[in-house]
Design a protein around this nucleic acid. Structure first.
Lengths: 333, 333
DNA sequence: AAACTATTTGCATTCGTATGCAACAACGCC
DNA sequence: GGCGTTGTTGCATACGAATGCAAATAGTTT
């Protein structure tokens, strides 16, 4: 059967000191004589002692744990964010507790579990916080930071990239490159990222006295974007440029055009995406896109969360970080 | 400042019962009268009480937490595994505590943190366990399951797909399709997956009295595989088939051949990968590959881990799951 | 109504560590 | 040597929930 782990009591007994002394050896800034410390560490090593983080959490009332809520880990963009966030928090002695939640219904039970977990903070990646839950977090003054999501609630911090200006840039760029019939493929209907990109894009077109030639919804999915492309390009007159709300869909568009429509990119159709995922740089695609500052966003989110945890004060700041246009070969000169 | 969370004591006081009664309301199979239960739940709701999982863990000596160690979350294959594993464990009331570890050095401190975290089990995804640490886990009878990794240590369970027979199938398939000069691009040198795939592949060739025409190492990376491809295909006589140890590298090969070498796939060169990642199915690639049973592997790992946790007995089983050949258009008839 | 059983409840303790407080030792200074 | 100062140490308690045990209550039977 399971062995009982070694406790600080046992180490204390072996080293001939009190349990307090052992505890002080493992907490920084504690007052402990070098000689004692040595004795204790020797005893600890001999027994294979490891401080019990659970017991420590109980008494210090901090778990050094951040709850991360995600819904689409299959999107490499968010996988990358998770990896970087994990490393970032690890550097600060925090660990990530992962919660996957897709449907709204599941979300409720997930939220209950998060509250029980005693996480010191909550990081929302590609998942939306129901406003009732946001309220509970704020009431308990648990810091929450959302990345790339918007929720209308005071006290919940938000970090996003400048989706609006990213979209605006795409609009101007395509006009400048002489595109005439520009189509837009949106992401999820309810996502603020998609609608902000769209708005910037439409405003850019409008600023030049132009309108969007066609709009469709791809739900940020490969397959949906493919279906949408088939529809857009079976008409007699079809777009000469497509702006997809993310790279994943843009890639689907390119693939479908080449494989099924016998159209060339960029000669026949220009395609622009958003995110700058690794695939976008592959030779087959050479996708022009807008890069989101993944690391900067995570850095910002990390800082916000840690600052709020340290201060015990829930702030609710909103940060918007600049995006970077990446010009590749998927749009003709 | 941070609000103090509501405790079972306070709920008990409001409901006019003892703290024990409150506790019993939140643990299944506990003896509690319906009437009392109702009173308590009402009080709990009024106060917004949530049981403190940390305190519960301390007394029950189970954290209902699984430590997951990963190194390459940027590989969608492992991202997918993580997502599925998370959902699977969530169903059983467990949560994943994420640890990223790349270099060997970092690994040591990560391992120390895992032991402190009091995780009930450890799941190793795309990360290798130093044998000293494996020993510590076994000594503490903490269940460990490794997916797709091999470590020579008793008591550590392993789940892998049948890499050998996957490689064997590729060898036979390429010969059957009439390929003459078959090259192999390996993954990481120290990875057991890569060497098992290679061995099966070589054995298949040998069974037909053939040998591998060329071998190179791509480290499972896109860029490295690209570089290797350039080398392989600048000679006068070049391979007419390439077996890459994973899809990611196979895609790199296809892309490089098309974009830089002006060679067609499959007409000039056949390409086969391993994993069956989503990209492999994209129209541009149509990659023939060997599918690993991701969900089955995770299911198996989950069961092993939960069984060992439940029994308190560390077993050390080894499971090998069958792979599925996926024939697409990247190999000529 | 008494006797007995089944169910519910509260008491007290436990988990393993951190920490305020007071006691104490060591050291330097006059 | 006496005094003050600084640095260590142990004692006792706290964190919040779970649970064995005994007491109390409810419910059943005769």
């Amino acid at each position: 059967m399971r062995k009982r782990p070694v406790t600080s009591q046992e180490v204390a007994a072996l080293a001939g000191v009190s349990q307090s002394a052992v505890s002080r050896c493992f907490s920084p800034n504690a007052s402990i004589a070098p000689k004692t410390r040595e004795k204790v560490l020797a005893a600890a090593k001999q027994l294979g002692y490891r401080p019990n983080a659970i017991a420590r959490s109980l008494i210090t009332r901090t778990s050094r744990t951040i709850a991360v809520v995600m819904s689409q880990l299959d999107n490499p963009f968010y996988a990358q964010m998770l990896e970087y966030a994990s490393r970032r928090f690890q550097q600060h002695g925090y660990h990530l507790l992962l919660f996957m939640s897709s449907d709204e219904q599941e979300s409720a039970s997930v939220m209950a579990e998060i509250l029980q977990s005693q996480a010191d903070g909550i990081l929302m990646l590609s998942a939306t916080l129901s406003s009732s839950f946001a309220g509970e977090c704020v009431a308990r003054s648990i810091p929450v930071v959302m990345i790339n999501r918007t929720v209308a609630f005071e006290g919940v911090s938000q970090v996003a990239s400048d989706n609006y200006h990213g979209g605006y840039w795409v609009g101007e760029f395509l006009i400048e490159r002489g595109c005439e019939r520009i189509a837009f493929i949106a992401g999820l209907a309810e996502s603020s990222t998609s609608s902000q990109r769209r708005q910037g894009f439409l405003d850019a077109l409008a600023a030049h006295g132009r309108a969007c030639w066609a709009e469709a919804r791809g739900d940020y999915q490969f397959a949906t974007a493919q279906a949408v492309t088939r529809e857009l390009f079976t008409a007699d007159v079809y777009p000469d440029a497509v702006f997809a709300a993310n790279d994943h869909m843009a890639i689907a568009v390119i693939d479908t055009l080449k494989a099924e429509m016998d159209l060339r990119v960029p000669e026949d159709v220009a395609v622009v995406g958003f995110d700058n995922i690794p695939v976008a740089a592959w030779p087959s695609y050479q996708l022009t896109t807008v890069q989101q500052p993944i690391e900067a966003m995570v850095d910002e989110a990390t800082s916000l969360l840690l600052a709020q945890i340290a201060s015990g004060h829930v702030a609710g700041e909103h940060k918007v970080l600049p995006v970077t246009p990446i010009v590749r070969a998927s749009v003709r000169r």
